[in-house]
Design a binder for these strands. Structure first.
Length: 199
DNA sequence: ATCTCGATTGGCT
DNA sequence: GCCAATCGAGATG
């Protein structure tokens, strides 16, 4: 796999909902111990710069969410209960906003993912934000990584033209601003979270 | 120092 | 569907 073809920073320097939608079909790559784990992004959620009570930037800048207020194209990794979630920062420099990666379709080093997850069933490997971080061994120490830099341990690659249909719906798993249609996923993809699994 | 709560998950009814 | 697990960040005293 050629991991030098990362999406440019200008991709992330746009409004958050657009980035969330266009991140679908791109490849998330995690380099660890000489292995290249990767998956196709099949589900995302946008968390907006302003007037979004569900966004972590809503309370202002803190030690935890610091990275949201800087450059776009960086990872924002935080923990929730026993798990971690990974966002990619968006908008122009200094404007907060991010896209939560909610699900992947596993592509390479799937056995390594199974080990990290202690889970053999393919459909349960990366079909949720906490699951995918466990599968790729992404933790708080991976916060603030530049995914546009080919040297980074976490990068996002363009996938060329990937023909797919996108569904937009309300965000899930949150208690505030639940009515905004800021969740995007590849229609019919088996790895989208919270759907009935058939295998 | 102590309390509260959550962008989740897995197990049980 | 419902609910407990479990822990760090943020708020409060």
């Amino acid at each position: 796999m050629n991991t030098s073809k990362t999406l440019p920073r200008s991709f992330y320097h746009r409004d958050t909902a657009t980035v969330a939608r266009e991140l679908l079909g791109k490849i998330l790559v995690r380099k660890i111990d000489g292995d290249i784990l990767s998956g196709k992004i099949v589900e995302t959620e946008a968390y907006l710069p302003y007037d979004d009570p569900a966004a972590h930037n809503f309370i202002g800048k803190t030690p935890r969410n610091n990275v949201l207020f800087g450059e776009a194209g960086l990872t924002y990794v935080h923990s929730i209960h026993r798990y971690h979630c990974i966002d990619i920062t968006t908008e122009k420099f200094g404007i907060p906003g991010s896209v939560l990666i909610r699900a992947l379709e596993p592509l390479s080093e799937i056995d390594k993912m199974k080990n990290f997850r202690k889970q053999d069933q393919l459909s349960k490997l990366t079909s949720g934000p906490g699951k995918l971080c466990q599968a790729l061994d992404i933790k708080r120490e991976n916060n603030g990584v530049d995914v546009t830099d080919p040297e980074s341990e976490i990068v996002i690659l363009d996938n060329g033209s990937d023909d797919h249909h996108i569904t937009a719906s309300v965000r899930i798993g949150i208690s505030k601003a639940v009515d905004l249609p800021l969740r995007f996923y590849l229609t019919g993809n088996l790895y989208v979270s919270k759907i009935k699994k058939r295998f």
